[in-house]
Every structure is written in C-alpha cells, then in structure tokens.
Design a protein around this nucleic acid. Sequence first.
DNA 1: GGCTAATCGAGACGGTACGTCACGTCTTACT
DNA 2: AGTAAGACGTGACGTACCGTCTCGATTAGCC
Lengths: 196, 196, 196, 196
Amino acid sequence: MERRHGQVGRPRSEQARTAVLRAVDDQLLEVGYAAMTMKGIAERAGVSRQTVYRWWSTKAEILFEASAVDAEQELAVEPTGEPVDDLTAYVAALVDFLARSPAGAAYRALLGEAQHDPAVADLLATKDVLGDSARTVIEGVLGAGAGAGPVPVGEATALLIGPAFFWVLSGRDPARLAPRELAETFLRELRARGRH
Amino acid sequence: MERRHGQVGRPRSEQARTAVLRAVDDQLLEVGYAAMTMKGIAERAGVSRQTVYRWWSTKAEILFEASAVDAEQELAVEPTGEPVDDLTAYVAALVDFLARSPAGAAYRALLGEAQHDPAVADLLATKDVLGDSARTVIEGVLGAGAGAGPVPVGEATALLIGPAFFWVLSGRDPARLAPRELAETFLRELRARGRH
Amino acid sequence: MERRHGQVGRPRSEQARTAVLRAVDDQLLEVGYAAMTMKGIAERAGVSRQTVYRWWSTKAEILFEASAVDAEQELAVEPTGEPVDDLTAYVAALVDFLARSPAGAAYRALLGEAQHDPAVADLLATKDVLGDSARTVIEGVLGAGAGAGPVPVGEATALLIGPAFFWVLSGRDPARLAPRELAETFLRELRARGRH
Amino acid sequence: MERRHGQVGRPRSEQARTAVLRAVDDQLLEVGYAAMTMKGIAERAGVSRQTVYRWWSTKAEILFEASAVDAEQELAVEPTGEPVDDLTAYVAALVDFLARSPAGAAYRALLGEAQHDPAVADLLATKDVLGDSARTVIEGVLGAGAGAGPVPVGEATALLIGPAFFWVLSGRDPARLAPRELAETFLRELRARGRH
DNA sequence: GGCTAATCGAGACGGTACGTCACGTCTTACT
DNA sequence: AGTAAGACGTGACGTACCGTCTCGATTAGCC
C-alpha cells in the first residue's frame, strides 16, 4: 500500500495553472482589481471554478503569484560603477513600476488591500519586493556590509523609496518626478551622516 | 409650481446622518474596512438602508466624510519657533496618525481602495489631507512663500512625508522609526539645496 | 415609532408566488422530480433564487403547496346514496389520482421522498390527503360516527386504500385494476365484521 | 499474445465488491439514503471512486444488490399447515420488514426513488420482492394452481399486502397494526369470492 | 386644517458572486 | 486489466450583499 517515490494520482495541469495566472493579469488590466472575481478569472482562463479554488484561496494570492516574478525583474538595475547613475536608474525603474507597469498595478492593488485586509498583509510580508530591490542597489553602491555603517539599510531603503512611493500612491503625476534629484538627495544624505 | 426658496417636504434627519457617521467609524474598528457593508452600517446606525443610499453612494464616501475632520486635527502641530522641533513633532504626528489612529486607519483604507478604484481616487483627490498638513508645517518653518525658493513645496512635501509613509504602508514597525532623524535629514537637505 | 395596524415594508408579490407554484408544476411534468432544482424553478418562474428561498426551504415544500389543493379536489366524490357506487367512484378516483394525475405524480414523488427524508415525512404528516378523503367517503356510506362501530376508521381506511395504493406504487398496471371489485370486497368485509 | 479463454488482466477484486456492499448498508443506517453519496460509499469501503463506478452506475443499484438477498430471507415464512397462522406470520414479517428492518429501509428508499426515477423503477421491476413472497404464501395456503381459482394471484397479492403496505408507507404507527385481523380478513374474502 | 412633498422605517424584489459539495470522467503509477 | 489516488469540468447548493422598489407612517412648509 505504501508508495515510496513518485507522485500519486493525476498530476496537476500546468496548462490550467498558467491559464489562471494569465487570466488574472488580463482581468486586472481590463476590469480592475475591484471588479475582478474568482468566477470571472475561472471563466476567462477556461478553467473550472473548483480548480481555481483548489490551488488558490483568494484573488490576491493569484495576483501575487502572477506578478511577483515580473516585479523583481522590473526593479533590477544593472550596476554601472557610478553611484548616482545606479540610484537614478533605480528610482526611475521604481516610478515606472509603480505608476506604469501592469505588475506595478498589481502590486499597488495588493498593497492597497493589505491596508485593510490582514490576510493580504501577511501575503505581502512573505516577500518584500520593494525593500529587497532597494537594498540590492544600495549595497551595490556602498559595497556589501554597508548596513554596518552609519545608516541602517532598512532606514536607507525608506529614504530612497519613500518620496517616489508617496508621490505615486497619493495620486500625484509621476511625470513631474525627477529621479536624478531624488538620487542625489539620497547620496548627499548618506555622506552627511557618514561625517558624524 | 416652482418654489424659489426654502425646502419642501420633510427635512433631512440630522440624527440619522450622525448615527451613520458614527456607525461607520465603529464598524471600521470592529470588523475592518473589507467586511464593512452598507447593510451593516445601516443596521448599526438604526437607520434604513434606503436612507443611507439616499445620502451616500458608497461606504468610501461615508468613511471619508466621517474621518476627514479628525484627520486634519490629528495632523496639526503647534509651531514652537524651533524648526527641528516642529518638523519632528509633525513626523511623529504623521506616524501616529497613519499607524495608530482610527482616522488614520480610515485614511489608509481609502488610499488602499484608491489604488484600484478610480472613484475613490477622485474622492481622495478632493482633499489632500497629508499634503496640506505638510505644506503648512514646511511654510511655518521656512516662512510663507518658501515654495518660491530652491525646493518646490510639492517636492519638499514628498521628501518629508515619503519615508514615514512608505515605512507604515509597507507594514514595517512604526516603533522603529525615529521622527527626529527624519526631521533632521529633511532640514539638512533643504539647506544643501539652498547652497546651490 | 409604534405601528398599530397594517403591514410594514413592501408587500409580498402574489405574482411571484403563483409563478413559482406554476413553475414547480411544470417542471415536475417536464423534467421529473429528481431533476427539478430550486435554480430551475426560479428561472422557470422568472423569479430570483433568493425570492424562492425566502418563502420555501425545499422543492418538496413548494410542490406540496402547489399540489395539495388539486389533490383534495380530485379525491372528492359526490355521494349518490348508493354505497357500492360511492366506494367504486372513490377507488376509481384514487387510482386516477395516483396513476394518472399531475397532482398524483407530485404526491407520489413526495411520498417517495418521505421514505428516506424525515423532513418530507413531517411535511406530509401535516395533511393526510389520502386518509382524509377515504374517511369522508366511508363516513358518508356508514353514517357519521361509524368509527365507533366494529371497525376503527383508521383501519377501514387502510383496507379501502391499501390494495390500489400498493398496486400503483409497486408499478403495476392501473388499467388492470377493478375498482368495483375492490369496493365490493371492502363492503363485504365491513358487513362481516359487523356480524361479530 | 491472444488468450483464448479465461479473463485477461487483473481479475475483479472480490474484496472490493463486498466492501462496497457492506459500506452501502452501513451508510444507509448511519446517514440515510438521501445523504448517501458515491464518494462516501467509496471512502467508507476503502475503495477508489472509479472502482465503484466500474461496477455500479448509481447508489440505487448498489443498494439493491446489497439488500435483495436479505429481503427475500426476511419475507420467507415456514408453512405450518394452518392457513390463518401462515398468513398472520407473513403479514407480521411484512410489517417487520417494511417498518423495522434495515433491508426494508433500503427497499422503501428504492421504492421511493422509483416513484420519480424511471431507472430505479426499472431496477425494482426486475425482482418483485413483495409480490413473490406473497404469492408463495398464498399458494402454500390454497395449494399451487390457486391462481386458476376465483381470485387471480396478482389481485390476491394486492389484497394481502396492500393494507399493511399503505399503513407503513404513509407513516402510520406499525405497532397499531393487527396482523392476525388482516390475515383473517384476507381469508374471509378468499372464501367469499370462492362461493360465487 | 387640509394639501403637497420629501423623508423615514421596513422589507420584498431581481441580481450576482461567494465558497462548498457531489457528480462522473480523466490521467497518472502501481499491482 | 484492475486498482488507488487525485485532478479535472460541471452544475446546484444555500448565503450574503448589492442597489432598487414599494409600502405605510411621519414631518415639514404652504395655502
């Protein structure tokens, strides 16, 4: 009776899985997060409602799985060796992501839900997309181990991301944001604190 | 047939209005924004559902009306004449508001909704609670007309609010935030830009 | 605040009620009891599912309400003064009802359900359609107060109804049943017992 | 490669078959016919759902196979040579079967289903459990070939079974039934008709 | 004091999505 | 070929809230 290796029963349909992830992306753009329903996703994916529920509990979970990979890619910047340029590129990528990318729309929707739904907050807490990307850039600029310096990485992250984050989420025009100035401001502050 | 002045018919019940606003506040704390329903609000207020719909279209509208005044009060700081102290007090008030106050919970819920619901975004755009309070403080520190200086007020606002805003909304622990350091950082940057 | 007389709220829609009762009758004939669903009834009636559930809990309840009146009418026979004729007419009506009438099909379906669903059994127990009609006929033949005679009415009822009831429910051909013989048998037995 | 006689491949598991039949009996008593499901039977039997479906189409089929043998046994009475006693014993057995025996509960459930499900009606028509047992008793009393007498066996069967059958299926209390009186009534009628 | 008109409560209405359940079929690996 | 396991599409279940509607009752200004 015992089964030692290999899976038992019919294997999960990879086709169904990707169809759902694609459907949730489409639905987000077409009808928006609020109007998105489990039923609608299933129908759009050509998959039964039961199958959706078998693998995901909420639309937030599906959206998270569907957008996490994209988010990481869109927030990665190649280091050039020049701190100001790297930081500027990152801030620009951040604004693009938050304000213009589909994956960013998903992220904003989830972060919005997280403000009043603890389950979604927990979900987002499993992967700090913004914080991770910012830390990577900051450490690339300062050298690894920068967190041991005068500014803890967590706080530095907030200084770097905060202004752009607030700008976009409060509904301000992303075109009126100057990534290079934010990058320079951040660098200036790092150096100022270093002098103490 | 036309009536030029004065309303005809039974006047709106002020009692019903305040009961609804109170109910929406209570419900937010008790069940949270997501689980809040028009039906629940009506029942909690001891008012018919029709009456709620007669005066508000969505729970967001009610919540906005119920929390706007509180928000303004909680974000106002008395000027002391000492820039660092004023800014520190403001940042502290901001964190308290966002992370600990009921009115702040309402604001975060609405801002969250706004990320995926244009109607709520429009609603929030009618009153820039955070921006206005920040501008008041900044102008108090620099003197009015500071916006004409080297840093536009809008951008300065983002620099001041951004880090704390991101910190709280991304689910980080508000206790680990140092308002005074953020205030000093902000002041340093203002002066640095002034030297150009 | 107190309301002394008259109904409160929107009154129940008589149109919806009759549409549902009619729909359940139609569905029984068209798709049969087993394939009948609350959803199907609602759609057929042009009524929302919620409205059906508001007034009835199960399809059995609806069917019972829809067929009870018909059943009573179909089982009523006019007394002629001649016992054998009255009893024969009744048995004939009983066979017609059970084997050929829509209301009888409803009754058989409900009685069938009642064999394995206590809720339906309770429902049927609220109105003994067959027993009542038989008692009326028997008392018409013997004179009221016949129950005080040698044969309790309950038992007499079983003697009169039983054979035809078994015949139809066990799937035998109703055409091969001779109502007059059953009526004569019943009368003979009544007299035989009277002689003891 | 070809195999000429005997079956090819793994033979049907007798263990699985009996486990299913036992499970369906258990389930009938524990949860009742209505709440009995193919899934539940399979799990209870420790057998895969597919295996159940391979050998039976519906729960009615399984139940029929599981209870038919028991039914026959419970309705068989040993002849004593005394007509009244034999008939009385039979009626008593019939009432016990219908009202108190697990196999009888299965029979009632199936007969109930048959009232609104033609497939079940066909199934039951393959074996006239009640009719056969009654015919055996009647022929034992009258001598074989009794059907050629004044009362066709089919009709006699209905006279003998009908009252008790109606009594139980219409939900009346089986304890208030007098088997001996029904047996005597039946005998009286047989003799009365014989005199014509 | 009667009339008109808008509000209020209650609650029924048609909708639509929810999350669950059982159905009967299928696709694996194993025996 | 039979079996256990379990995913699949299907479709009804009963519930919840949506926003609208129809009632009777209430409360004001106006004639």
